[in-house]
């Protein structure tokens, strides 16, 4: 297996475009998933029984089905109920919905880890629920849930590869495209593997750095 680097260098433009799409869908999917997930978690903690049951159903259904099937429903099934999306938009929406349930579970665990007494204290002081979530609960639980969040973000990075199946021109799509044009499948896929490992390693390094930063901030507060 002799690797011809011109395979890559000649197509550097396409590849960097693919990388950009990967990053774009990843970041947008994470942002959307985190936002929906936080909303779900807040509603789960403070909502009524019916709302909680409904959210539970949503979480179980999303968790029980493969991401690919969710994408198919959204992208190919969407037009049947008037939802005609561009592939990339459908991809981001799908990644957001898929990620939201995992974000929700992490946030819920975080909320549950904060002692009830603090909320009662806040209640007595006349602090509103929303203020309480934003100012008291979120900052504290962030430290606890950060490792799980970082892990989820790296999982979502890997899931963006699945977007190639619904023809989104992200990195995997571009590289397999080059592979089928040149028949150098093994080489291009090897480069693709390394690219993902670098992405994953970078994001978990960043996560570790953040964990240390947030931890330090807390320590300084407590002393």
């Amino acid at each position: 297996m002799i690797f011809d680097p011109t395979l890559i260098t000649e197509r550097l433009g396409d590849i960097s475009n693919g990388l950009l799409v990967t990053l774009e869908t990843w970041f947008a999917g994470v942002a959307m998933g985190a936002a929906i997930g936080l909303l779900i978690a807040v509603l789960q903690v403070f909502g009524g029984a019916w709302l909680r049951a409904l959210l539970r159903l949503y979480i179980e259904l999303i968790r029980a089905t493969p991401f690919l099937v969710q994408l198919f429903l959204l992208y190919y099934g969407g037009p049947s109920f008037g939802l005609e999306l561009e592939a990339t938009t459908a991809g981001i929406l799908g990644l957001g919905i898929y990620g939201s349930v995992y974000f929700a579970e992490i946030f819920r665990t975080g909320f549950e880890s904060i002692p009830k007494g603090q909320l009662e204290a806040a209640d007595c002081l006349g602090i509103t629920r929303l203020q309480c979530i934003w100012r008291i609960q979120l900052p504290q639980m962030l430290v606890l849930i950060l490792p799980a969040l970082v892990n989820l973000v790296t999982i979502l990075c890997k899931e963006t590869a699945v977007l190639s199946i619904i023809t989104i021109p992200e990195l995997t799509m571009v590289m397999t495209g080059i592979g089928s044009e040149t028949f150098a499948f093994v080489e291009t896929l090897l480069v693709l593997c390394v690219a993902y490992l670098v992405l994953i390693e970078l994001s978990s390094r960043l996560g570790l750095f953040l964990e240390r930063r947030v931890g330090r901030f807390l320590q300084r507060q407590s002393t």
């Binding site: 890997k158 590869a161 699945v162 995997t172 499948f185 093994v186 896929l189 693709l192 593997c193 390693e201």
Partner: peptide
């Protein structure tokens, strides 16, 4: 764990 399963399968 680092490489997406889809890419592993293709590889």
């Amino acid at each position: 764990r680092g490489i997406p399963l889809l890419v592993q399968l293709l590889f």
